[in-house]
Design a protein around this nucleic acid. Sequence first.
DNA 1: CTGAAAGCGCTTACAG
DNA 2: CTGAAAGCGCTTACAG
Lengths: 324, 324
Amino acid sequence: MRVTIADVARVADVSKTTVSRVLNGKGEVGGVTAARVREVIARLGYVPSSGAVGLARGSSRTVGMLVPSLAWPWMGEVLQGVVDTVEAADYGLLLFTCNRGAESVERFTGQVSAGAVDGLLVVEPENTLDRLTALYRGGLPIVLIDDRGQHPAFPSVVTTNREGGASAARHLLAAGRTRPLVVTGPPAFGCVRDRLDGFRSVLPTDLVVHGDFTEGCGRLAVERLLAAGTEFDAVFAHNDISAAGALRALRAAGRPVPDDIAVVGFDDIPMAEHTEPPLTTVRQPTRRMGETAARMLLDRLGGATVPDAPVVLPTELVVRHSAP
Amino acid sequence: MRVTIADVARVADVSKTTVSRVLNGKGEVGGVTAARVREVIARLGYVPSSGAVGLARGSSRTVGMLVPSLAWPWMGEVLQGVVDTVEAADYGLLLFTCNRGAESVERFTGQVSAGAVDGLLVVEPENTLDRLTALYRGGLPIVLIDDRGQHPAFPSVVTTNREGGASAARHLLAAGRTRPLVVTGPPAFGCVRDRLDGFRSVLPTDLVVHGDFTEGCGRLAVERLLAAGTEFDAVFAHNDISAAGALRALRAAGRPVPDDIAVVGFDDIPMAEHTEPPLTTVRQPTRRMGETAARMLLDRLGGATVPDAPVVLPTELVVRHSAP
DNA sequence: CTGAAAGCGCTTACAG
DNA sequence: CTGAAAGCGCTTACAG
């Protein structure tokens, strides 16, 4: 059925060793012989079995990726960055989610122990951190893509949340806004604290409502403050979804954006261009974060030492109509 | 380093054969012996090497998935459906894209020939169809998730594009709209023809502008017709992105939606709830399409025969404010 | 009920 | 420059 190295060897009238050598470019092989072997390989359409190669070499040339959910709006970009990088290096990508809780984690660690992957890329490990730490201590290369907490034990890729918050504040300040409302994400997340600190370092405010990254939290926060008659001339929401909620509440209340109140989000997901008005937001370099993390992991698998300190990729303020 | 079946056998004082048997539940094994082996497996934390198992059994317990791009708004849902199903069956998922053109396809076919996957899930094969056909003829199980053309050679999962178009028309008709504009996707796609036919079967119109699924095409179509003074009281756009473009053009022109002109999209991507006004749209069951395709492939890998005829999953009209 | 041995398709010392 | 042989970690007839 399948064409094997033995078939090639037989037809080319050499040993399997020799075929293996021309395949991997290792060891000296006579020019004429090598040419003949190559010709036979092409003619027979021989492709080495990845399973057998992996077993013999003790590595699978595959990296695993563990994500909390694939349906999040920015996950596609991260994934695309990872896949591009991994494919270019001729590695495979094995994808796992942990949205079925403990069972998923179980299955996932199993596959890892089974040696199905040479290394791991993990996005925001939620309840997996102890397992991951064990695997990492056991020698499995791991790189985190994570803003939510600090895990000094692992190499990681993050973005400039503090500076991102600060850039939003500078932009609003330059536009003459002095009384901003901040709608945060879950206060337990490191990125949330950083975005808030950065913002306040430029534009101090005590008008802070703790949200949870949903549309509803942005909407409710604005509705309540308006109902209470609280004054504010800008909203900085910690993600675009809750910024969209704020926009909706302002529109419903008849408060023009940006003339009356300016709105700035965070992430720059595809939706941000399509809100009314289009959303000014702090762009996370999601694709580049994926690429960078993958590159770090591949470097590590290639024998390089990767930095202990988190690699920090810059955010970028994207100015649209909600805060010109 | 790694715990092998030989270690387990030695410690449990049995042969590797016996360990293999309790591992796979094949053949008779004495109760006491089995219990002892199981205890040793647990104590040593033994996990069979997936590479070795695959080599010995001639299958990898992994399915491949080939997608044109991971950044498309509905791809995350498809992927999530696939991953959930595949994980539940204890298979791995190897992810490939073909967004680097011929090179990607090359790499991809290579991995397939290398036996890295037992079967394949393919989303909208663009320039890959000949390669795929060759692989399929060669015995590789493949299931397509594809609306764009008809490929009777492969098992596939599609949605009710014709009925989806018809449902949009019925909804508009019931609301008293009689003069609709249709902004299509690329006319070469089968789904586009179906959506158009279904729509016109209920609400005949010759006001059809061929677009390309971009925001710009929806915006331009509306701008031009308005500039030309053409009368219409509704827009049916073939995807949500171009519907968003239509909304923008109508807003810019001061034509109220839905009072003056109603707008219906297609897909129900996350953005659809956040446009102004929120978009009425024909929902594609993307997640279920992923689940269904994965299930068909797994069934096929399990030895079942899968239907030749495409499996058709129903669309659902989601009514929001743009066309109440 | 259990085991010795061959085989899956490669790579890699080792020897010449 | 080239090859015979062992080994990677499993499964599976075959034999008892």
